[in-house]
Design a protein around this nucleic acid. Structure first.
Lengths: 215, 215, 215, 215
DNA sequence: TATGAATGAGTCTTCATTCAT
DNA sequence: AATGAATGAAGACTCATTCAT
């Protein structure tokens, strides 16, 4: 039935992307991200995934394990890196482009649901929250900070604490969108709003850290 | 599992803060904020509150209603306004003071738990998230925006879109603290860190919006 | 509803013989002794006891605990001591009387079911088997052995190893009845058979240990 | 959970002791005798036997059938007859030898487990208990009784009811060992204890039934 | 023959809610 | 008002059994 029959025990977890596992994870995503870990029932997941309850347990030891696997997938998804060229001549334009791309992903309804779910159980399952942060926001910060270091070295930015600056820019990018979506007071932004938000963020950022008051 | 029955109830009987209601809400806070809506059981709450399960239902129609009442209380708590004098001569100092006070409250473990809980069920109970946002973050933004309008009128700030600027400053204040606590990757900050974070936020903010590059 | 309302927390376990507990234990007895620990379902027990499944868990933490409580009751029941007068002049008659009384109890269908159940899970729950043995058969042996010691001291029996003799007599009493009932190859004996079995046991016993070949 | 479907199946295909059947029965023995009928799962058995769950059903119609086949094997094992020479000159020695051999087998951990398992489900599956008794203990009694008849005829024993005497001797042999092991209060005896127990049994037995008070 | 994926009924247990007192 | 006993629906998880390959 499933095509790529996993040979007896190839890798333990990652390789077994049999069609069934996909089905299940997709069902789990729909249900977990909508109802949260405790709110979701294995019955719901089975129904949405189109498999029997028993089948869930063939592939995942228990609810927490299934949830973990789903979150691991979401993290992987969040690992996507957005382009940033340390040798690019136009810092403002580079940052704007970066910000738009990043925001376009982050403000995705799907991503917001992941974030909500993860934050919702961060107290109960601290590791889930920490891992997610590490693979998501943290990577962006590290990425930006490295970029800043390079530009500072090249004399094109004036920054004391690059990590702090990176965090500030990241927050500025999120302005008016991320928190608002998390609380459910607004919908996913269109391209125009994303562009404007990113641009304003960069303007504010460079007002402080830019070499000659660019933007 | 009725979706949004948290009707006016909490507002209907506001005065009857009999000791029992207090007890119950305190127990509910401890349990709900720790375990989330679905994770918490009425039995837990009764035990922690030191009342019988039956008593819970004397004061609250059901679990959702109790949760709703608790969140209403948290909202009220979040309504606290931080001082900001539109006629103050030293904008930088004013904003720093404001930022520190606000952050000191926002970064409270208790507040973080509230936020987590609310965000965690924002998809399931949208009204809860919206109300909470309206009484919390939104009020801060409105407050700041009004302050900015006044300062712009007085020629002491240069801002086109005051709401946008307010949002940006709010985000800058949160830098490195709020998200990180929500994800559980860091603990509550001390006064020194709060001060530094607020100061840096104001510096970046005024680099763009200040009249003469103050800070 | 229940008559003797157990005051809040009188004794932890033993005293709360509320009517409900009785009902439940009686249901549990019927079901457990018929189907064994694993074969019995909490649903069955609830139905037979005439309470809801939930109620079971109000009084007993889980299935094993309920089973334990039932077995504890059976053990208590098994503790009954049968009369044996160390100063009685007619040893043969005393032992016959003792044997009949003991057999009458042991060969009860109810007792046999208990024994079957206990032996059936002795490998899984060793403590259950050991406790049951200690309170049941072992007590009989100790009782008999003490009686023999007295009679030997009085010169009315000739026994080297009184515990061994006690065990032998106990086995002789069981002859043709207990094993057979355990295996389900025969029904509960009538008074006549009990009498005859006990008498024969005593005759054999005294042939070896009696002072003058009595019987 | 069909009650007594252990039909002639095991007898139908007696010869096909293909390695697979052996494997399965050995696995079934390990699991059933340890966990009991209800406690054992087909999954456990498959794993221990080293075959797939599906294969179990190739050879046995269902769980009850497999159990039945296993018990049939155990019965066969229990059929082993212990030597007893009706013309032997030294009855005491003969009986002692017999007792020791029999006890050595009966007190085997493996046999005890079989007995426990069979007794444990004797109420649920009466036929299992009855068949087992017939092939095990009953055969010993018949064997002994026949021996006694011969010796009585030869004037070397004085017995009214030979079956009763046989049962008594059998019980005496078990003294202090079999019940105790069934309840799990003691371990398998060593040779010395077996010898002593058998000897004491014979001594008591012959005190009553011996022609001249031998032993 | 042998497998192992798949199933759905059934198991133990929890929990929101009700109700007599 | 306050209790706590009682419930039944629902949840996570297991397992005997089937079936395509």
């Amino acid at each position: 039935m499933s095509e790529q029959k996993h040979s007896p025990l190839p890798d333990l977890q990652p390789a077994e992307d049999s069609a069934k596992v996909r089905q299940i994870l997709d069902g789990a995503r729909a249900v977990f991200l909508k109802l949260g870990f405790d709110g979701a029932s294995m019955g719901d997941i089975a129904r949405v995934a189109g498999v029997s309850k028993g089948t869930l347990y063939v592939y995942f030891e228990n609810k927490a394990e299934l949830f973990s696997a789903l979150i691991a997938e979401e993290r992987k998804r969040a690992k996507r890196e957005f382009h940033l060229d340390p040798d690019g001549p136009d810092i403002a334009e580079d940052l704007r482009r970066y910000g738009r791309a990043m925001l376009a992903y982050v403000s995705t309804a799907q991503n917001i649901r992941s974030v909500r779910t993860v934050i919702g159980i961060a107290e109960k399952f601290p590791k889930v929250g920490q891992d997610f942060y590490r693979d998501g926001p943290e990577r962006g910060i590290v990425h930006l900070a490295a970029y800043f270091e390079a530009q500072v070295a090249a004399g094109r930015l004036r920054i004391d604490d690059c990590r702090m600056a990176a965090r500030q820019l990241q927050m500025l990018f999120h302005t008016g969108i991320v928190s608002e979506m998390l609380y459910g007071v607004r919908a996913q932004p269109g391209d125009a709003e994303i562009a404007r938000t990113a641009d304003e963020a960069v303007t504010t950022f460079l007002a402080r850290y830019g070499v000659n008051g660019a933007a």
